[in-house]
Design a protein around this nucleic acid. Structure first.
Lengths: 338, 338
DNA sequence: CTGAAAGCGCTTACAG
DNA sequence: CTGAAAGCGCTTACAG
């Protein structure tokens, strides 16, 4: 059976297609009685608006793309929910794609979205992404906002203020009396560099900081392996700082397994304050990097960008917040070295 | 500047639009030299295929919808990743939406996808969903597969075998010597009923089972509140079984805070085996309900369904697997009652 | 294997 | 406020 179209509706209601079209879009320029007749016809015929066809004509799709590496870090699940909420309210439907930090996959995903004429894209760039990687978006003038990782260029970007987050944690640990800390896990990204930079600044010169080249995926397994590498290298700091909470959770388990008691015999902290981090034993000290605010700002920046010029400000840095819990709060220096 | 279309490409290559169209779709019916000339033109002009326009003509969109309540449970993040992987490989792009267990939001989300002519939808139905709620999908003949929660009808469905999962856990706890267990958390859903049913069967008649009407959202906070309600009601079982792992993580914290040591003084278990559960202290005993397999089966069932009749089998139950960890593995009966 | 024409379902000027 | 015509960018028969 053929699809019911706007032409069928207009005939049934005794008006032209143009009029019916205005009614479905809620135009006030149609007489109320006419509009009512059209709406009746819609119900009687079981008509469903074909936004895809409308979009072809209007050359916009009312869809947005959200592309990230993966969801194994709940931070991105939280961000996704906030982003989806805000754009859904504006009538947009969301395309989603996961690059798994693979450049080919990222290219295919972005192309697929561009071919479907997305109106805009929020992207967490995969490792190794360059400005050139984004040519498929730029050549079609698809407004793009980066989040969490930036490329160093002037492209619109939303993220936590990672330098500030690192500094807060560094200051906290120093004030506890930590004299030796190590940083582990994460990938070689802008946000990792920024967190380390802040940590160094916050801890100050009195604190010895080990920055072994120990990277890891954002998983508990990755965290456990990272801290094992650290300990196997003979490094036993007062405090371990993990690149993020998921990694810190893995560090936590590995420390327990080695007979260390996080929060007592060794301090432990992460970044992000994923909701699940408060449900850890011991409760995990962390710096909230505002998943929901980042998602919301991405939506706001992108929506403001649509059909217009790149927005000002082009960079939004969310203010982090230190959340002190038992994983550092109970730790005390083993002995005074002064 | 106007968009580069297939007409521009065909002119530039000296062929007709139809021929150019065949080339972009990789048809073998075009002479190789002609095809090469067209491909050159595409590159030279910077042409981008407009799949949205193609889809209008073909009346299919090469998009699928994945609709669930939310991502606060990592189980659904894992499922999403697996589903996305498989459908991406088949050339589909994914629309996503979160209902937050709200029927209105679910209706709006499904309508938005239907208006955009999705080829198929995988849905975790919000609480209160009836067959009638799915009329927007059915009236447009959008193939639909349910997951995690079913409606009792014959609609295609993928989920874990929750009865079996409950039974495994019940048998495990009984074999440990647990004589009194309580089940807490979760919503009033098909999967909760099934888990409870299996648990009762597995534990047998010798085990006293408390099923207080304590429901909760899938969050650590929800879990902490649920177990507090239990304990405040004066119930102190040998073992607490939570509806899922996220809730169990909250139970874990609340038990510690009350001076109970999960895994020692009280046994604790959940369901799902979310990846992060292994990174708990103590390690959480759970029944894996196969997030990735569920996602994969959803993709397979839905793709098989597209353009054809509803698939057989219409129901796929993934086999669960018991994962014993310290949260029950270290527990021993306090005294013999025989 | 290639080309001219019609059509997917809508919206957009332009007359009236 | 309403209607007839053209067009969004593609694909699909149908001739050749």
């Amino acid at each position: 059976m053929p699809r019911v179209t706007l032409l069928d509706v207009s005939r049934h209601a005794g008006v032209s297609r143009a009029t019916a079209s205005l009614v479905v879009r809620g135009s006030p320029r149609v007489a109320p009685t006419t509009a009512a007749r059209v709406r009746e016809a819609i119900v009687e015929l079981g008509y469903v608006y074909d936004r895809a066809a409308a979009n072809l004509r209007q050359s916009r799709s009312m869809t947005l793309g959200l592309v990230m590496t993966d969801l194994s870090n709940p931070f991105f699940a939280e961000l996704t929910m906030a982003f989806e909420h805000d754009v859904h309210e504006q009538g947009y439907t969301l395309f989603i794609g996961y690059t798994r930090d693979d450049l080919d996959r990222q290219a295919r995903t972005l192309s697929a979205m561009v071919e479907r004429r997305v109106d805009g894209v929020c992207l967490l760039p995969a490792l190794g992404t360059t400005e050139a990687s984004l040519a498929p978006l730029d050549s079609q003038h698809v407004p793009t906002v980066l989040f969490t990782r930036h490329l160093g260029g002037g492209r619109p970007y939303v993220g936590a203020d990672n330098v500030s987050a690192g500094r807060m944690l560094g200051e906290h640990l120093r004030s506890l009396g930590v004299r030796h800390l190590a940083f582990v896990g994460g990938q070689e990204t802008s946000s990792r560099r920024e967190r380390v930079e802040g940590l160094l600044a916050g801890a100050g010169d009195d604190v010895r900081i080990d920055l072994p080249p120990i990277y890891s995926p954002s998983s508990t397994v990755g965290g456990a392996q990272a801290v094992s590498q650290l300990l196997d290298a003979g490094i036993l700091p007062d405090a371990v700082v993990a690149y993020n909470d998921v990694i810190a959770m893995g560090v936590n388990v590995a420390l327990w397994e080695r007979g260390l008691e996080p929060g007592r015999s060794i301090a432990l902290a992460g970044f992000d304050d994923i909701r699940i981090a408060a449900g850890q034993v011991p409760g995990l000290t962390t710096v909230a990097t505002r998943s929901e605010e980042v998602g919301r700002s991405c939506a706001e920046l992108l929506l403001g960008y649509l059909g217009g010029e790149p927005p000002a400000p082009r960079t939004v840095l969310e203010e982090p917040e230190l959340r002190i819990r038992a994983s550092t709060g109970l730790w005390r220096p083993r002995m005074e070295t002064s």
